[in-house]
Amino acid sequence: MMTSKYKEGTSTNDHVSEFQSVMNQLLGMGVKVNDEILGLWLLATLLDYWETFRVSLINFAPQGIITLDLAKSGVLNEEVRRRSQGSTSQFEVLVTENKGRNREKDGKGRDKSRSKSREI
């Protein structure tokens, strides 16, 4: 259980169900684990590309407390959000273009960039 990780390509619903099943087995054996620890544990099973989600959920949790129910609902809702946006790949990439000076072309196809230095 300590090394359990979300498996790429499986649904988060299956992962959450598997996690809950193991928790139920532990409870059946008399092992008591704090609800906040369980919530954080579930988040820790997610792969690295869930890091932004984890941080956001932790930062916006009521009184800063992550419960198992909050973690489960957050994970399931995040999968729905990602699927609805079509970002089912493991990495979402932000691409910025034309970083640096703004360059304009004159009528002859030459750059008309201006220096950003100032005269003193």
Score class of each variant (00 low, 15 high):
residue 4 S to I: 12
residue 14 D to H: 04
residue 119 E to H: 00
residue 120 I to V: 08
residue 99 K to P: 00
residue 46 L to A: 01
residue 17 S to I: 02
residue 43 L to N: 01
residue 62 P to D: 12
residue 69 D to W: 01
residue 35 D to N: 08
residue 57 L to Y: 02
residue 47 L to T: 15
residue 16 V to R: 04
residue 58 I to R: 15
residue 49 Y to R: 10
residue 74 G to H: 02
residue 19 F to G: 01
residue 39 G to Y: 02
residue 115 S to T: 14
residue 108 K to C: 11
residue 104 E to V: 09
residue 94 L to S: 06
residue 80 V to N: 05
residue 21 S to E: 09
residue 74 G to S: 09
residue 120 I to G: 08
residue 97 E to Q: 05
residue 17 S to D: 13
residue 51 E to P: 00
residue 61 A to R: 09
residue 98 N to L: 01
residue 18 E to V: 01
residue 25 Q to K: 13
residue 23 M to E: 08
residue 13 N to C: 04
residue 59 N to G: 06
residue 16 V to D: 11
residue 52 T to Q: 10
residue 45 T to H: 05
residue 23 M to R: 12
residue 113 S to G: 12
residue 86 G to L: 01
residue 22 V to K: 13
residue 1 M to H: 10
residue 22 V to A: 11
residue 88 T to V: 15
residue 97 E to T: 11
residue 30 G to P: 09
residue 112 K to T: 15
residue 32 K to V: 13
residue 73 S to E: 15
residue 79 E to Y: 01
residue 113 S to P: 00
residue 109 G to Y: 05
residue 86 G to C: 03
residue 29 M to Q: 12
residue 25 Q to F: 03
residue 77 N to A: 14
residue 73 S to Q: 15
residue 8 E to R: 13
residue 93 V to S: 08
residue 51 E to C: 05
residue 2 M to E: 14
residue 13 N to A: 14
residue 79 E to R: 03
residue 105 K to P: 05
residue 101 R to I: 05
residue 80 V to D: 08
residue 15 H to P: 06
residue 108 K to N: 15
residue 40 L to S: 04
residue 109 G to H: 08
residue 6 Y to N: 07
residue 71 A to L: 03
residue 38 L to G: 01
residue 75 V to S: 03
residue 117 S to D: 04
residue 95 V to E: 07
residue 106 D to A: 00
residue 12 T to C: 15
residue 33 V to E: 10
residue 94 L to G: 00
residue 75 V to K: 04
residue 15 H to E: 02
residue 120 I to P: 07
residue 64 G to Q: 07
residue 43 L to P: 05
residue 39 G to L: 01
residue 41 W to G: 12
residue 44 A to Q: 13
residue 119 E to Q: 10
residue 38 L to K: 08
residue 49 Y to G: 03
residue 111 D to Q: 08
residue 6 Y to A: 03
residue 31 V to N: 00
residue 51 E to H: 08
residue 100 G to V: 02
residue 5 K to H: 14
residue 46 L to I: 03
residue 30 G to H: 03
residue 67 T to L: 06
residue 98 N to P: 00
residue 69 D to S: 13
residue 51 E to V: 07
residue 104 E to H: 10
